[in-house]
């Protein structure tokens, strides 16, 4: 923890949305939405991945985040039947729009992990952050 502040400066900031029904979230987040152990990653819990407005992801990038992601349940298991498919589609479209605007579409990601896949989820987020750092993060 002592080294965290310094490291945080070098880590790209990421804003994510996590479905209430996906990864088990007890003890996952700090009260200020950041992920325990990953102060540079903010995760906002949402009732369904389909709740997320693509505009929010753009807002995150505009406000300084290096990347933004949405995590829903495994494809086919959405509690609301279609939320994660719809979200996956919206993200595809958002990426196309971003590349037309000369913004790297790889800054947006979509994950799908279930209740028991917290480790995999955290790993995916860490990998995402690594990728963002590799590509220089911003812009």
């Amino acid at each position: 923890m002592a080294a965290a502040p310094e490291r945080m400066e070098t880590q790209p900031r990421v804003v994510g949305f996590l479905c209430d029904w996906a990864v088990r979230s007890e003890g996952l987040l700090n009260p200020d939405d950041t992920v325990v152990g990953m102060p540079h990653v903010t995760v906002i819990r949402v009732p369904c991945s389909g709740f997320v407005k693509p505009g929010w992801l753009e807002l995150a990038l505009r406000s300084g985040a290096a990347g933004a992601f949405v995590c829903g349940c495994p494809m086919g298991d959405c509690l609301n039947r279609e939320g994660n498919w719809i979200m996956e589609d919206r993200i595809d479209q958002l990426r196309k729009r971003l590349s037309r605007q000369k913004v790297d579409p790889e800054r947006i990601a979509f994950f799908a992990y279930g209740l028991h896949e917290r480790e995999q989820f955290l790993q995916a987020v860490a990998d995402f952050v690594d990728r963002l750092r590799g590509s220089g993060g911003k812009q």
Partner: peptide, 10 residues
């Protein structure tokens, strides 16, 4: 939500 995003994005 927008406010939380801004905060998270720094």
């Amino acid at each position: 939500v927008q406010q939380r995003i801004r905060r998270g994005a720094g």
